[in-house]
Write a protein that binds this DNA or RNA. Structure first.
Lengths: 232, 232
DNA sequence: GCCTAAAATATTGTTGACAATATTATCGGC
DNA sequence: GCCGATAATATTGTCAACAATATTTTAGGC
């Protein structure tokens, strides 16, 4: 868990540039292409192509595929090859269920472990500027803020085990969030919900924060159900 | 996620014998040795040794190590080798936290998805015979029953995503459960708690089942805190 | 023109050899 | 005898060639 997850974490937080081995770089880049739909679900990916493109041996590509498979981002069929995993409506709903309890736990632990002032920066970030940005459909700004929120919470929660599980589903959550954001009204609702959660966290009310976070995911689930014809 | 997890699941449920590729067999056997403390935490494991012992090439061993690392069972230090991951007290407590919410979700979904008679066999299993076995410290019987409970619930929950996350922590949970069972009084308490959960599930009361399951894990956590000097 | 069989091609799976790195043993100086 | 430098060994990291398998193309019969 430890080493690889640390590598992954720094990637997630500090952007696409990342250190580590050739294999790690490959994993990061492929991950990026998959979640940005540059490689849409069902795409076949050939070991040779990537090997040439990145100037590494096929063995590295193979190792990367192994990791990506373990993470559920690609599917490997023996002697046939690897394809980007398809995201079915069912699995989206499943994802909401686990997000609800895991992210709820995340904010509860984070609240318990911190002093009120820990949240000042984040509360500032989720202020008037961001609200205006959300109203103007500046999704990149909102996505970045959400990523920051997540990252800060995970750190405060201080549980490597929880972090590992959240990382496991991170890519799928990301792709889901990106889509859901397009639904008119969802982004601003999510924004207000995050404000509420942050207030509860600053007040040190862990139970309330957990409840609000769970409501946040539940309402996202509702929006998804309503609009899933457009989203899938 | 899909393919590999399916392989893993069948392994967990249907015992050490298992199909798949050389790599899969290796993963299973190493997993077994680690959770049974045949390879205690901190043990160094050499690629060559295993390659010879199993009569496979070092590449297969290498692949297996990659999977084991991803699952958090071993730690790989570049150019130094692989060692069995150490389990610290902190990580045990973390494990209880995530178990609480995930297994709570598991029984809630399982209850929602099933008819009362679905639980007949399991309620029978958690009957007078097993109670006597627990009183007589027949831990193997109890462990088997718990595994059955877990397996049946996961199937009923019907969420591949949840299953994947539970599988992720399964090995650590197992090693924790085995130890905790030795604490006088814990096993019989756990037994009664499972009876209560099963009753709630048969009654179709999903909320109650979830609450009881969470209490079950919380009480296990209490016992662990009290006796952790002996358990670690 | 269309279906089937077989050859040609492309792609993944596996291996053993070699390079890079870390660990251990040896030797000389003090 | 103890310490440090260097050589010897062991172990992991990487790769390119080869084998196994699947896919596509071609050829032939009807």
């Amino acid at each position: 868990m430890t080493k690889r997850n640390v590598t992954k974490l720094t990637t997630v937080t500090s952007g696409p540039k990342s250190g580590g081995s050739d294999t790690d770089r490959l994993v990061d880049e492929l991950r990026r292409r998959i979640v940005t739909n540059q490689m849409p679900p069902g795409s076949r990916i050939r070991e040779n192509e990537l090997s040439e493109e990145f100037g590494v041996s096929r063995s590295r590509v193979r190792d990367a595929f192994g990791i990506l498979e373990e993470r559920g981002l690609i599917e490997r069929i023996p002697n046939k090859g690897a394809v980007v995993m398809r995201l079915e409506a069912d699995s989206f709903l499943e994802l909401f269920d686990v997000r609800e309890v895991l992210e709820g736990l995340m904010v509860r632990l984070a609240t318990q472990n911190t002093e009120p002032e820990y949240w000042d920066d984040l509360i500032n970030l989720f202020g008037a500027d961001l609200e205006k940005a959300v109203e103007n459909n500046d999704f990149n700004a909102y996505m970045a803020a959400i990523a920051q929120f997540r990252q800060t919470c995970i750190e405060a929660a201080g549980s490597g085990t929880l972090r590992g599980l959240l990382d496991d589903i991170y890519d799928r959550v990301l792709s889901m969030t990106r889509r859901l954001m397009l639904v008119p009204g969802r982004a601003s609702e999510g924004f207000r919900q995050h404000q509420g959660i942050l207030r509860a966290m600053q007040e040190g009310d862990a139970e309330k924060a957990e409840r609000l976070k769970r409501e946040n995911i539940r309402s996202a689930r509702q929006w998804f159900l309503k609009y899933n014809d457009f989203l899938l």
